[in-house]
Amino acid sequence: MQNPVPVLSMRKLYSSASSRQEFIAEIGKAAREVGFFYLEDHGISLTEQVKVLDIAKSFFALSNTAKKEIQMIHSPHFRGYSANYSELTAGRRDRREQFDIMDELTAFSDADIHHEWQKLIGPNQWPKQLPEMKPQLLSWQDKLTEVSLQLLEALCESLEQPSDALSETVRKGPYRHTKLIKYPGTSEGSEQGVGAHKDPGYLTLVMQDENSGLEVEFEQQWYKVAPRPGAFVVNIGELLELASNGYLKATNHRVTSPKKGVTRYSSAFFMAAQLDASVPVLNLPPHLAKQAKGPTSDPNNPLLNNVGENVMKGRKRSHPDVSMRFYPQPLECTSC
């Protein structure tokens, strides 16, 4: 079977009323059947994408000393550099170097922290050797946010809901997380770059270089999601699957390491509900509800009602060294 991941053109969303409806039908079908799709004509130029990959290459080429100065172990907000085998996926160590940012914010004072997840909020770490990196990546994150919020509205419409059905959950700004990633080659060729997993949020947008490695599970088989110049690979997260009562599909995916002598670079952008949000379960019309393939949702599911807490749990699982340093004991809730 050929690659099941469809290609969508975002241009249709704004071309005409009929083209818009065609796009909404296409994104709904892709998100329900596969949970993955390529997105073209999204308004972010190939030149801009290449510049982000170039800054990633420049960063990872810095000395180990320079990178360790902004290692994630220095950040209670889980920002900064991670070396190979630092992050865990499905309990196993990933072979990849990473640089993580989120929103550039001021950390809460200790007196203002009533929930442990509030400690996720704070500043990023930046390499002093690359002063251009901060404005470039923050601008990049803003542009991907705009694209992902437009997709979220289109997906709500595909569920025959108002386009703003989930807008209250991102009104103060969605939770945003961007990674620059370097996958070194290995003689094994099939070593875990990232283990099989589903993303926890609403949407993920991935930009790949020319080297393949991303794979998606579809009907119990794994398929390569080969790079398409200029296109993002978009996938549905578990939070959106739950909000759609199982209609939209969060799909297992993984990254295998490239062959020896090849280095793969990519950037991943994750968008979810704001950390203090409660996410509703959308009331789908019967003809859509009966097509749902995923798990049905309990409106009291803690994944829907404790967004920040679940983001924090995920960060702790993925980065046990940071967790051990800054979170050896859970914070007792003072306002529950």
Results as ranks from 00 to 15, higher is better:
Gln2Trp: 06
Ser9Ile: 05
Arg11Thr: 09
Ile27Cys: 13
Ile44Arg: 00
Glu48Ile: 04
Leu53Tyr: 13
Ile55Phe: 10
Ser58Asn: 12
Ala66Gly: 05
Ala66Ile: 04
Lys67Ser: 02
Lys68Trp: 07
Glu69Ile: 01
Gln71Leu: 02
Phe78Val: 01
Phe78Gly: 02
Glu87Gln: 14
Arg92Asp: 15
Leu105Cys: 09
Phe108Lys: 07
Ala111Ser: 15
Asp112Leu: 14
Gly122Asn: 08
Trp126Gly: 05
Pro127Ile: 09
Pro131Cys: 07
Met133Cys: 09
Leu144Cys: 15
Leu144Asn: 14
Glu146Cys: 10
Val147Arg: 01
Gln150Lys: 14
Leu152His: 05
Leu155Lys: 00
Pro162Met: 02
Thr169Val: 14
Gly173Ser: 05
Ser187Thr: 11
Ser187Cys: 03
Lys198Ala: 13
Met207Val: 06
Glu215Tyr: 07
Glu215Ser: 14
Gln220Val: 01
Gly230Cys: 08
Leu239Glu: 06
Ser257Gly: 06
Val262Asn: 12
Ser266Met: 01
Ser267Trp: 01
Ala268Trp: 00
Pro280Cys: 11
Pro280Trp: 13
Ala292Met: 08
Pro299Glu: 03
Pro299Ile: 13
Pro302Ala: 11
Gly314Glu: 08
Lys316Asn: 06
Asp321Arg: 06
Tyr327Glu: 04
Tyr327Asn: 01
Glu332Ile: 15
Cys336Glu: 11
